[in-house]
Structure formats: C-alpha cells, structure tokens
Design a protein around this nucleic acid. Structure first.
Lengths: 132, 132
DNA sequence: GAAGATAGTTTGTCTCACGTACTAGGTCAA
DNA sequence: TTGACCTAGTACGTGAGACAAACTATCTTC
C-alpha cells in the first residue's frame, strides 16, 4: 500500500471510530465536535461556525437540535444585544466527557497495534502533520 | 498534543482535503468513495452498500444521483433477474482518475512536511494501523 | 409449485449544509 | 443625533445523505 492510500485509509478508520462512539449516544460526528469545542469556550454562533467550518445559517439548526436535547444552551451576549453565547449544560458536559473518554479508549486500542517505540514515533510524526 | 488528539486531528485534516477536492468537482466524500470502489469492480447494490458501510436503501439514491450525472450506470445482472450491476461510465472513470490524482497530490503536499526518512517511517506505521 | 428468502426500490422521516432574505441591534460619520 | 450602513442571528426553501419499514419481483428450496 502506498503512502497516500495508507493515510487516507487511516483517516477513514478514525472517522469510523468517531461515528461509532457518537452513535452509541445518538450523536453525529459534527455534534461530537460541537460538544468538544464548547468544553472550554462559550462562543457566539458565528465564532462557533468558524471553528466548525460551517456557515452561520448552518449553526442555527445544529445548536437548536443540541439545545432541544438539553446538551447546550443559548444565552444572550452581555455585550451585544444581537449576539448569543452557546454553552454546554451539565448534561452536555457529562456527555462530552464520556464521549471523549470512549474515543480515547478506542483510538488507543487502534494504536496498540504499534509497540511503545513506534507509538511514540507515530505521535511525533502525526503532530508535525497537524502542525505543531 | 497527545497521541489520540494527533491522530484525530490528522484524520480531520485528510477528510478536509478529500472534501475540498470533491467540491472542485461537485462531489461529496461518499461520491468520491463510490467512484473509487467502482474503478476495479462492478458490484451489485448490496455489495456496494457493504463496501461503503451503508444500507441498501441508502444506495438507491446515491447511485441514482450519480447516474443522473452520467458518472455511473446500472446494468441488469446477467445471472440474477432481481440484481443490478453498477459500473463507471467513461465520464465517471475520467473523473475518478482526475480526483484520485488531485487527492494524491494534496496528500503528498501534506506529507512533504516530513523528510524522506520520516515519510517512509510514517507510511510503514500507518500501514500497520490500517492493517496490512 | 408453494413457501420462504433475497435484491432492489419506494416512501416517509431525520440530520446536515447551503444560499437568500429578513429582523434587530450596533457603529460611524456628517 | 440621526440617518446610512454594517453585523449577529434566525427563517425559509432546497438538496444530499442516511435509515427503517413496506413493497415488488425474482430466486431457491423442499
């Protein structure tokens, strides 16, 4: 298998893990990312859209669906009457934490195909690629 | 950045490349995968669904949209009156080839952040992870 | 040859994403 | 300070993508 194929296949493999963990909690990958971003931020809709690479008009529905499930809440922005801040609810935070732990476990399982030295190497190389 | 994060981030990065290349040709990632699978196969709908991890009922629309664009065609299965074989049209094959080349180029660009030795290492490790 | 399995489509429903149009609230400059 | 613009978010319409359940037509098996 050539390099490009290996990287692309690996990427699909990881995405499958994310989708599977999400499915256990009725979350799509985009919802998982949403919760993940909100763990240490309370952005407005626009900023949230930037993080996710989505148009602001896509955000309304995404946030509304999560809100209806009690995972996030909208709060009026204190400094801008037009603005809205999005934050995790306690339930949302719990779910984000559980999900992240499961993802970590499953990805680690995958990485256990490598021995410690290889894993270290791999992490280092992957870090360069995602730019650190 | 920890190992899990690095792998997950890298996976998103690759997916973004696939989406971007697809977008240039008005193809979604799933359509790219569809064309890719058909490059060396003429499967039935069910088999195609297995390759893509999709239900057969999802296949009808996916194939129909590609068919309407002239990228694939349905042919009656010679051995099973119920069955249908899906194949690339010449236009579909051209698009699959162009798309694959672009993906290869963009992924290679990404991998150029590594030097030759690292790249070789990385390929080898990634191959193990996708199971080879 | 009738009963049951299988391949694919249809239909209805949901999520996700976009563009466009709109509302309400800021900002700035004359 | 008050118009003229700009900005944050929502609403609406559309289309892709995914599924489940129900259906049709063909096989298979006994």
């Amino acid at each position: 298998m050539n390099t490009v194929d290996a990287v692309v296949q690996l990427s699909f493999r990881v995405q499958r893990i994310l989708a599977a963990v999400g499915a256990e909690h009725d979350l799509s990958i985009i919802q998982i990312r949403l919760l993940g971003i909100l763990r240490d931020r309370q952005p407005g809709m626009l900023e949230l859209g930037n993080h996710l690479g989505l148009d602001k008009s896509s955000m309304t529905g995404l946030v509304s669906r999560a809100e209806k499930r009690g995972l996030v809440e909208r709060m009026p922005s204190p400094h801008d009457g037009r603005g809205v801040l999005v934050a995790l609810t306690p339930a949302g935070r719990r779910l984000a934490e559980v999900g992240e732990a499961q993802i970590a476990r499953r990805v680690t399982e995958l990485l256990n195909e490598l021995n410690a030295t290889q894993r270290k190497q791999f992490t280092q190389l992957a870090s360069v690629l995602v730019h650190g």
